[in-house]
Design a protein around this nucleic acid. Structure first.
Length: 450
DNA sequence: TCTGGGGTCCTAGGACCC
DNA sequence: TCTGGGGTCCTAGGACCC
């Protein structure tokens, strides 16, 4: 009988690998990539991990170790990673008609096996896994890990085996379906490492003696479901080989969209914070227009650092009388919302030091589902303005035209000291940026011949 | 000095209705 | 004075993921 299987294809240290593709001299160098604002480590190669550094570590805490060990450090370059991701996913589509792009660096694909001839089939799939590795490597230069199993959760678990193979410098591809050491793997996987089980439930499960993936697989899914919730029940079943999460290949309609950033430094000046917020509104609205969506509920957030002594989190939201993706309309509303949540001083009279602003667009709908009033001429006219704005920004680069509340773009500023001082104070720190090799002409790689 | 950004799903509890 | 029971919808917040 034919059985359906799932392959998980997971790019190894994806952001680091993207940087390496265009800098072959870094082939054997340890690399790490930082989050926006050069805040935390978000991607690292195994050698960096062996220095005791893990994902999420604040950069300033490990900067010295990095320098000492000659780690190549990069600011995140999402233009490059997004484009490389698209190439990887295109390549993967050769192997199955049913592909789910799960994240920027992961995809699940559906495969089939004949369970009447298990040993031959396992060998065939093992070869296929390696073939996927080689094909993606050849087509994109990105190394992937491939794990094949009965369910997504088991494929995730099998992916730990591929990490081990990688450490041993072998091809990181494994057929976890009928894998000889499957039981051992399950017994040595801590419960907190199972996909879908985080700190919260990990601790709870351990308190009732479920310490490993194997322990949970041995449990009664119904009992788990009753004691905790349906999500854990499904995870339990998936570990037992029962499919609860099928491939979701359709492009799921986005439900919300967030645009937020930490500032390059602390701010108290409401004018500058509002400029940052307006920029997020403009970027978000542009993204909505690209995806042909409109938002029904807008909220804004401003906050001081989590670790600040004098902290505050301000948020305000509003249901729009008419869903929209018009930057001008949304900017005005955002400015009103900002007034509602901006507080300058605390009760002791000390200034709050804000470090982050953001806009959240909720209740998204396709823009053609909005019924326009017969006499809604203004609306049509506004859309033309937005179309034009998008075209100009596309042709001449982002921020060719901005809304006044975003502040004056740098290129239009004079060189006076005062102007320099104000110059996009809130823009983020990116001190280790690589070129956008694949998406911007003037940043294209130059090769000298001869 | 310095701690990311962007998502989804589920659940409990309140509001409201009959 | 007595003060039901069942249902739906919405929302905030928790938990998790990459």
């Amino acid at each position: 009988m034919k059985v359906k299987l799932f392959a998980l294809i997971d790019c190894s240290s994806f952001y680091c690998s993207c940087e390496r593709v265009f800098r072959p001299e870094l082939k054997d160098r340890s690399i790490c990539v930082l989050s926006n604002n050069d805040g935390c480590v978000i991607s690292l190669t195994p050698e960096v991990k062996s220095l005791g550094i893990s994902i999420g570590t604040p950069f300033f805490k490990v900067k010295d170790i990095m320098v000492k060990n000659k780690v190549a450090v990069f600011s995140s370059n999402y233009c490059l990673y997004g484009d490389m991701s698209r190439r990887v996913m295109q390549t993967i589509k050769k192997f199955s008609d049913n592909v789910e792009v799960y994240s920027i660096d992961e995809a699940f694909i559906e495969l089939e096996a004949d369970d009447e001839d298990i040993e031959d089939e396992r060998i065939r799939l093992q070869k296929l896994a390696k073939d996927i590795y080689h094909t993606v490597m050849k087509g994109t230069g990105i190394p992937v890990r491939v794990s094949i199993a009965e369910t997504k959760t088991l494929a995730k678990l099998g992916s730990d085996v591929t990490k081990k193979l990688l450490r041993e410098k072998k091809i990181p591809a494994v057929c976890f379906w009928n894998y000889p050491d499957k039981l051992l793997s399950m017994k040595t996987t801590p419960i907190g490492d199972v996909w879908g089980i985080g700190r919260g439930f990990g601790d709870k499960l351990q308190s009732i003696g479920i310490n490993t993936a194997h322990n949970l697989a041995e449990a009664d899914a119904k009992v788990i479901g009753k004691k905790y919730n349906i999500v854990l029940q499904k995870t339990t079943l998936e570990l037992q080989g029962v499919v609860c999460n099928p491939i979701e290949s359709g492009h799921a309609q986005r439900k919300s969209l967030v645009r937020s950033r930490s500032f390059g430094l602390k701010l108290n000046d409401s004018k500058l914070i509002l400029q940052a917020l307006s920029t997020h509104i403009a970027r978000g609205a542009e993204k909505l227009r690209q995806e042909k969506l409109v938002t029904g509920v807008l909220s804004v957030e401003i906050s001081t650092g989590r670790h600040s002594q004098n902290k505050i989190f301000g948020t305000a939201s509003i249901e729009l009388s008419k869903p929209t993706n018009d930057t001008l309309v949304l900017s005005k509303i955002a400015a009103d919302l900002f007034k509602k949540c901006y507080v300058k001083k605390n009760q002791k009279g000390e200034d709050y030091q804000y470090v982050k602003a953001g806009a959240v667009f909720h209740d998204l709908k396709k823009d053609d589902t909005i019924t326009h009033s017969f006499f809604d001429f203004i609306n049509t006219e506004k859309n033309e303005i937005m179309d034009t704005l998008d075209k100009i920004n596309k042709k001449f680069g982002n921020n060719a035209i901005v809304v006044a509340s975003q502040g004056t773009p740098d290129r239009l500023r004079g060189n006076s000291a005062a102007n320099k001082k104000e110059s996009t104070k809130w823009s983020m720190k990116r001190n280790h940026m690589s070129p956008r090799y694949t998406t911007v002409w003037k940043e294209l790689m130059k090769v000298r011949i001869g």
